[in-house]
Amino acid sequence: MAGRVFFFLQHATYEPAFQAASMGITAAAMGDEVYVVFAFDALRQLVGGGFGHPQGAREQEECARAEGLGVPPPARMLEEARALGVKLVACDTTVRICGFVPEELERTLDEVLGLASLWRLTQGARTLAL
């Protein structure tokens, strides 16, 4: 049963980025309409090219084990998920609080939404905060 799924990310170091990217690409491949909502550190990491970079020794070890298993890094999974229709979005106010100009994020994000629009999209959807 296809539906709408939202992944809310406030952090995007290796672990939460891996969870969002791997579940997002899986949900999209199974026919769900998927949105990844970036806020604060996750938004800054995405914009700065640091999405999914390991932080600390544990995440570095996990990243190395995943690489040894042939698991793609979170940033590549996110690109592949986007090719399957996953939408990368952020709230307009959060974008501005983080010091970004919404129009300058057109290539990084698929859409910058007002909070009311984002809220309406979540109605009836499955939501996961990572």
Rank of each mutant, 00 (worst) to 15 (best):
M1A: 15
M1S: 15
G3E: 06
G3P: 01
V5Y: 09
V5I: 08
F8A: 13
L9P: 14
A12K: 01
T13P: 01
Y14D: 03
A17K: 12
A21W: 09
A21N: 12
S22E: 05
M23D: 11
M23E: 08
M23A: 11
G24Q: 14
G24S: 04
I25K: 15
A27W: 06
A29F: 09
G31K: 01
D32W: 01
E33R: 00
E33V: 02
V34M: 13
Y35R: 03
Y35E: 02
V36C: 14
V37E: 15
A39Y: 13
A39K: 15
A39I: 02
A39D: 08
D41H: 08
L43F: 05
R44D: 03
Q45F: 03
L46C: 06
G49L: 08
G50P: 01
G50R: 09
G56H: 01
R58G: 04
E59N: 10
E59G: 02
E59F: 07
E59K: 05
E61I: 11
A64Y: 02
G68H: 00
G70E: 09
G70L: 00
V71I: 12
V71F: 13
P72Q: 01
P74V: 13
A75T: 06
A75V: 14
M77G: 07
M77R: 15
L78T: 05
L78E: 13
E79H: 07
G85D: 07
L88D: 05
A90K: 10
A90N: 10
T94F: 05
I97A: 10
G99T: 02
F100L: 04
F100M: 10
F100K: 11
P102G: 01
R107S: 11
R107I: 02
T108A: 05
L109I: 07
V112I: 09
V112L: 12
L113Q: 00
G114N: 04
A116Y: 07
A116H: 10
L118Q: 00
W119P: 03
Q123T: 10
G124I: 07
T127F: 08
L128W: 12
